[in-house]
């Protein structure tokens, strides 16, 4: 029994005489950069509180615009084009597009993943 244990120890000593390899800093640095890139690209694009706020604003704006067109039946999209040429409701049309643009452009800029590095 003791002989077996000694022999096993001898084999282990023999195996342990193989030196440890020490990786270079450059190898580690390359791996760190690659792993970080990989983790970032795998992170889901999450909605921030600003995204939620802008979504609420867009919904509110859509509601206002809907009510606005309900109050003024002649103010629906087909009518706008007709009126545009007639220049009758030009200030209203400007207001309509201006309001829509002000609300949708920041919202789109916020929710699109372009600036978050998500889909690059």
């Amino acid at each position: 029994m003791r002989k077996d244990r000694n022999q096993e120890q001898e084999i282990i000593d023999f195996l342990m005489s193989y030196p440890e390899a020490i990786p270079s800093q450059a190898q580690k640095a390359r791996t760190i950069a690659q792993v970080q890139r990989e983790i970032r690209s795998n992170q889901p694009v999450r909605l921030s509180s600003m995204d939620v706020l802008f979504t609420c604003l867009l919904l509110a704006a859509a509601l206002v615009l809907y009510l606005f067109s309900a109050w003024l039946p002649e103010f629906y999209s087909g009518q706008i084009l007709i009126q545009f040429y007639q220049l009758r409701y030009f200030p209203h049309i400007l207001f309509y597009f201006g309001l829509t643009g002000c609300l949708t452009v920041p919202l789109l800029l916020t929710i699109l993943p372009i600036k978050k590095g998500g889909n690059q």
């Binding site: 390899a21 990786p23 190898q27 580690k28 760190i32 792993v35 970080q36 983790i39 970032r40 992170q43």
Partner: peptide, 21 residues
């Protein structure tokens, strides 16, 4: 999971040598 620099460095520094060996 958040991709924090320190955690990634720790992961690589701690496990790279043993995986290499």
């Amino acid at each position: 999971q958040k991709g924090e620099q320190q955690a990634v460095e720790k992961l690589v520094n701690e496990y790279y040598p043993s995986l290499l060996n």
